[in-house]
C-alpha cells in the first residue's frame, strides 16, 4: 500500500475531494464494506485460477433484505466473487478460494459443509435463462422434491404456485403448467428460473447479469420483481448495466482487476463516487 493509500481509512473511506482531484489511484477499498446485521460476511477473500489471482483480498458484507449490485469492467472479478458465495467455483478445476465467507455466521467453506444444501440456501440465477427441459410445473417442483421440502402433492402444488406468484409468473402460466418451460418467452423463462430458485426457500439469491438476454420490457418486469423479492431475501446482483445497478440496488460495489475499489450507498456511488477509478468507470471514461 502506498503512502497516499494509507491516508484512506479502509472502513470510513475518508478520502477527501482534494485527494481525488489529485488523481489518486489507490487499490484500498474506499467506503464501508461492513453492515450492521450481515446475512453474508466475506473477509480477505482471494481467488486463484491456477497461478492467476482473480480476486485480491476482498472484504464485503451482504445485508439482510438488501440488493447489493456489483459492477465493473469485464474480467474485474465480480462474477468470480459472486460464484464464491455459493461455492460454484468448486466445480472449476484449479480454482482456489482463501479467506472467510460466512452465511449467518457459518463458514461456507468448512469441510464438513455439504455444498448442495448450501446452494439451496444461496440460490443463483444466471445470465441466460436455463430452464430444465421439463414442464413449467416440474421446473419449479424439482428443487423442493430433491431437497424433501414437501410431504405430499398438495403441499408441492401450493409451493409451486406460491413460487410462481412470487416470481410474478403465475397469472401467465397457471393454465399451462404442463407445457415445456423452454416454450416461454425469454423474460418468462428467466422469471421461471427465479421461481425455481425461490422454491427451495433460499436466504440469499445471487444473480449474474440476469437481464442481459432480455428486452427492455422483460428487464423492467424482472427489476420490479427483484425489488419485491428484497422484502424476503438478500440479493447480490452482477450487472454490466449501471442504470440497472442504480435502479435496483441499495448498495453498490465497484470491482477493478480483482480489487474491490469502492463500496457504498448506491445513491452516493452514482452521484459522488470517492475513487477516481469508480468515477471513470461509471461516467464512461474507463479506457
Amino acid at each position: 500500500m502506498n503512502t497516499m493509500a494509507e491516508a484512506i481509512d479502509k472502513t470510513t473511506g475518508a478520502m477527501s475531494a482534494s485527494e481525488l482531484a489529485g488523481g489518486i489511484h489507490s487499490r484500498a477499498t474506499v467506503g464501508d464494506f461492513t453492515v450492521a446485521d450481515p446475512r453474508m460476511s466475506c473477509r480477505d477473500v482471494d481467488v486463484w485460477y491456477g497461478s492467476k489471482q482473480a480476486i485480491k483480498g476482498v472484504s464485503l458484507d451482504i445485508a439482510q433484505n438488501e440488493v447489493l449490485s456489483m459492477i465493473g469492467p469485464s474480467g474485474c472479478g465480480k462474477s468470480t466473487f459472486l460464484r464464491c458465495l455459493n461455492r460454484m467455483n468448486d466445480t472449476i478445476d484449479g480454482c482456489r478460494v482463501t479467506g472467510s465467507i460466512r452465511l449467518d455466521g457459518q463458514d461456507i467453506y468448512d469441510r464438513s459443509l455439504d455444498p448442495v444444501p448450501l446452494r439451496a440456501r444461496v440460490g443463483m440465477v444466471f445470465q441466460k435463462p436455463n430452464p430444465f427441459p421439463k414442464s413449467i410445473y416440474e421446473n419449479v417442483a424439482y428443487g423442493p422434491r430433491i431437497h424433501g421440502l414437501t410431504n405430499n402433492r398438495t403441499e408441492l402444488d401450493a409451493l409451486v404456485e406460491s413460487s410462481l406468484r412470487k416470481a410474478g409468473l403465475w397469472e401467465e402460466v397457471k393454465d399451462r403448467l404442463d407445457q415445456p418451460g423452454t416454450g416461454l418467452s425469454g423474460g418468462q423463462q428467466q422469471r421461471l428460473c427465479i421461481a425455481r430458485t425461490i422454491a427451495v426457500s433460499p436466504e440469499v439469491i445471487l444473480m449474474d447479469e440476469p437481464c442481459s438476454a432480455l428486452d427492455p420490457i422483460a428487464t423492467a418486469i424482472v427489476e420490479e420483481l427483484i425489488d419485491e423479492l428484497r422484502a424476503n431475501y438478500s440479493i447480490a446482483i452482477v450487472t454490466h448495466s449501471m442504470q440497472q445497478a442504480a435502479r435496483v440496488s441499495q448498495r453498490t460495489a465497484y470491482f477493478h482487476l480483482g480489487d474491490l475499489i469502492e463500496v457504498g450507498e448506491t445513491n452516493d456511488i452514482f452521484t459522488n463516487p470517492r475513487h477516481k477509478l469508480t468515477e471513470d468507470y461509471i461516467t464512461g471514461r474507463f479506457g
Binding site: 449501471m242 442504470q243 442504480a246 452514482f270 452521484t271 459522488n272 463516487p273 469508480t278 468515477e279 461509471i282 461516467t283 464512461g284
Partner: peptide, 10 residues
C-alpha cells in the same frame, strides 16, 4: 442520450 452519472450528472 447519456443518462449522466457522478460528475457528469453534477
Amino acid at each position: 442520450r447519456r443518462q449522466p452519472t457522478a460528475v457528469d450528472l453534477r
